[in-house]
Structures are given as structure tokens and as C-alpha cells.
Design a protein around this nucleic acid. Structure first.
Length: 272
DNA sequence: CAACCGACCTGTTCGC
DNA sequence: TGCGAACAGGTCGGTT
């Protein structure tokens, strides 16, 4: 579930505690978490490295290391990164543990085992296919209109397509469309310039507000901050997970349909 | 090009 | 109460 606001929050929180630290050891508990290189080389290229910087690109977290390598992390569905002291309790879902030079650990736990990480000198090999960042100032309404032109796809599917825009997933695609008053099944290349501007604004507002509230922690608590605190945006969701509940804008019951095998929540009254 | 499906996974929820 | 089926959705690769 972690999407752009959750990974952005993670990057900001980890920046304060990880930058300047060195990795003194790495334990791979579930080898398939390591997408590349092979787990042995993965560990060898990390041990002894200092963490220079932390960035986000789409839903990817990037840890910049000295000597030019990058550690890339994708949380997918259930991944979680947590800072913990050396005496923290066992976790049955631990997949990779990074031991740091201050005695603390960065633990990657991931019940569903979908999360992936990689060490590479060339992040572009992994991130090259991603679309633009939704919050990039260069992504103007005019440019967004150009991206939509000729795309005969349903809006919801396009917003969640990482090649189109990097970072939106099921939750925020639904929330953005509700804020913009656009139906999730609407064909993408039929939007008027006014509607594109509205979509552009809704996207920025929803993402910026979600980041300000440190992301969405749902009842299952699969996403929490590195210290275990929850994000606070769940209370501000208008449609996601609210089927049958009243629309915050008009009071009509929120409906749910399916787009490409995934659920799409919307207000049948406000989103035509 | 667009839509759909199965695979990857396991914890939770649902129906009988 | 207990059990298995269905569901959750990010991404990839294959098929229609």
C-alpha cells in the first residue's frame, strides 16, 4: 500500500537518522527480497559503505552510498522499514536487516514477501521507465494535457500506471479523482482543458496534504513510520475504503467498481 | 494499443 | 465453531 506520500515520509524520516551512518553488516533472511545482484554480492557491496543521501522516486526509496552505489528499496504491498535498537524483539516477517555503526539496526519486514531491493551503480536502469513525478513543478496542466492526448484508457488505470506518473497507487488515484470530480472509468483523452487543470490541482492538493499528514495508515497498520507511529491521512480519505458511507461533499453513498482487477471507489453523484 | 489474467505471497475477512 | 474460499493490491509478463 505504500504510495508516494508514504515513501516520501519514509525518506524524510530516515534522512535524519541514516545519513552519515555506515553499514557494518547485512543479514538477508529471505533471499528473493534481493532482486540484484545475487545476495552474496549484495551484502559485500553494502558492508563498509556510508549512507550519503536519501531520495525518493515514485514509490522507490533510494539510499545513496559512498563509492557510487545506490541501495534501491520498493516496499510493494506490505514492506516496512523500521529503526530499532539492538535488543528489539524478533519479528517473524523480517526479510533483511542492516546493522549500523551506532549499534542500531534498520529492519526490512515484509509479510507478503513482495518487496524488493537492489544495489546498483546505475539507478536509471531500474527507474528509467517511470513517468514524471506528480509534484514536479515542470509538470504543468498543459504538459499533463499532452500526456493524456490519445490515451484511450480509463482514467483510474492511467493514474495508477507508473509509466504515466510515478507514485500514485490505488488509494491516491481514487482520492485524486474524487477531488477532481472525475469518474474513474472516464476515457482519459476526453477531458476538457478545464478538467485537466482540475485534475492537476487535485493531484497536487491530495498528495501534498497526505505528505503533510505523513501518509495513510489503515486499520491493518501495514504502513507506519520508522519509529512505529501511524500516518494521519486515513481520517481524511473521502472515498477509499468507504463504500456505502456518505460522500463528504454531497452525502451520496460511495460506490465501488472494478478497474483492471482492482477496486475503484467513487461518488456516483459528484463523479460523472 | 487496451484489457485481462496469472503469478508472486500471506494475513484477514467472508460464507457456509 | 471451524474451515476453505475469496479478497487485498504493486508489478511483471504473457495472451486476447
Amino acid at each position: 500500500m505504500p504510495e508516494l506520500p508514504e515513501v516520501e515520509t519514509l525518506a524524510r524520516e530516515l534522512r535524519g537518522v541514516l545519513v552519515g551512518r555506515s553499514i557494518v553488516g547485512v543479514e538477508v533472511c529471505w533471499p528473493r527480497t534481493v532482486a540484484a545482484p545475487d545476495p552474496e554480492t549484495f551484502v559485500r557491496r553494502l558492508v563498509g559503505r556510508r549512507i550519503r543521501e536519501i531520495r525518493r522516486r515514485g514509490k522507490w526509496l533510494l539510499l545513496g552510498l559512498d563509492e557510487g552505489d545506490w541501495l534501491l528499496v520498493h516496499l510493494r504491498m506490505s514492506g516496512r522499514l523500521a529503526m530499532e535498537s539492538a535488543d528489539a524483539p524478533e519479528d517473524a516477517h523480517t526479510r533483511v536487516v542492516f546493522y549500523l555503526d551506532d549499534g542500531r539496526r534498520l529492519r526490512f519486514s515484509d509479510p507478503r514477501k513482495f518487496g524488493r531491493m537492489a544495489v546498483t551503480a546505475c539507478p536509471e536502469d531500474w527507474l528509467g521507465g517511470l513517468g514524471p513525478e506528480p509534484l514536479d513543478p515542470d509538470l504543468t496542466p498543459e504538459r499533463l494535457a499532452g500526456m493524456l492526448r490519445g490515451r484511450r484508457v480509463r482514467l483510474k488505470a492511467l493514474l495508477a500506471d507508473q509509466r504515466f506518473l510515478a507514485g500514485l497507487g490505488n488509494i491516491y488515484a481514487d482520492e485524486v479523482l474524487w477531488r477532481a470530480g472525475l469518474h474513474p472509468l472516464r476515457c482519459a483523452d476526453t477531458l476538457t482543458p478545464e478538467e485537466v487543470t482540475c485534475l492537476h490541482g487535485a493531484m497536487r492538493e491530495v498528495l501534498e496534504e497526505a505528505i503533510a499528514r505523513r501518509g495513510t495508515t489503515l486499520a491493518d497498520r501495514r504502513y507506519v513510520l520508522p519509529d512505529g507511529r501511524p500516518g494521519e491521512f486515513a481520517a481524511h480519505l473521502a472515498v477509499y475504503g468507504r463504500e456505502g458511507h456518505p460522500c463528504p461533499r454531497c452525502g451520496a453513498p460511495i460506490a465501488r467498481t472494478r478497474v483492471g482487477g482492482r477496486s475503484a471507489h467513487y461518488c456516483p453523484q459528484c463523479q460523472r
